Computed example of a mutant assay.
Amino acid sequence: MRALVIGATGATGRELVKQLLADARFTEVVAFVRRPYFEEQPKLIECIVDFENLAASADYIYGDVAFSCLGTTLKDAGSKAAQWHVDHDYQLEFAQWCQTKEVRHFLLLSAVGVDPNSNFFYNKMKGVLEMEVRALHFDQLTIVQPGLILRPNSDRVGEVLAGKMLLFFNKIGLFKQYAPTSTAKLASIFVRESKVKGRGERVIKTKDYTS
């Protein structure tokens, strides 16, 4: 299989590319990156892309399965408008190109609790993206909704503290829907789900994932 990945240099994306390259089922892995990042590997194709001009890289957008893991934080983006542009606009355009190029299976990294009508910016942004990707009618669409993502060696103090608090509350049966998920587990869910044959939509909540 030929796999396409955006967000390949993020914490989840890096782990996903690693696992895809280690899996014999995948013969080519195309990582769309803003600048050179990965070491050369036989199955890896690194496509340097300008997300403001994704059409320039359209010749690389073909394959069996596509993973959309792109995202930023409000702090790194600098404003809500800038975060929306990355987390929503870039991913939606990539999905549109994948549909145009007849990529059969599209897998989207979202979040638990998203809602296009939410009063919370992040939940609304992710909810609108889910809704608009659904409207593209891929043959097969998988949406993965983790709670808190645990990044290895994270330097985000709030994230580390939130992870510890959630683990404590989870032990006493609270906030199970936000149960932390490591990037390694999240990537393994994506890889396994990409091999599931079927049609239509499947929503995966990582707290419920058992297969």
Rank of each mutant, 00 (worst) to 15 (best):
R2N: 14
A3W: 02
A3S: 11
V5C: 09
T12H: 10
G13T: 09
G13S: 09
R14V: 12
R14Y: 12
E15A: 12
E15Y: 03
Q19M: 12
Q19I: 08
L20D: 02
L21D: 02
A22L: 13
A24Y: 05
R25Q: 10
F32Q: 00
V33Y: 01
R35W: 06
P36Q: 12
P36H: 13
Y37M: 09
Y37T: 14
Q41E: 13
I45M: 05
D50M: 04
L54R: 01
A55S: 14
A66R: 08
F67T: 00
C69M: 11
K80G: 07
A81N: 09
W84K: 11
L92H: 09
L92I: 12
W97K: 08
Q99M: 14
T100P: 01
L109V: 09
N117S: 14
S118C: 03
F120L: 14
F120Y: 13
F121W: 12
Y122P: 00
K124A: 11
M125A: 14
K126P: 04
G127S: 07
E132N: 14
A135Q: 15
F138I: 06
F138W: 10
F138E: 04
F138T: 10
L148A: 03
I149H: 11
V157I: 15
G158I: 00
G158R: 03
M165C: 15
L167V: 02
F168G: 06
G173P: 00
L174M: 07
L174R: 06
L174G: 00
K176G: 03
P180D: 07
T183R: 02
L186Y: 03
L186K: 00
S188Q: 13
V191Q: 03
K207P: 05
S211G: 15
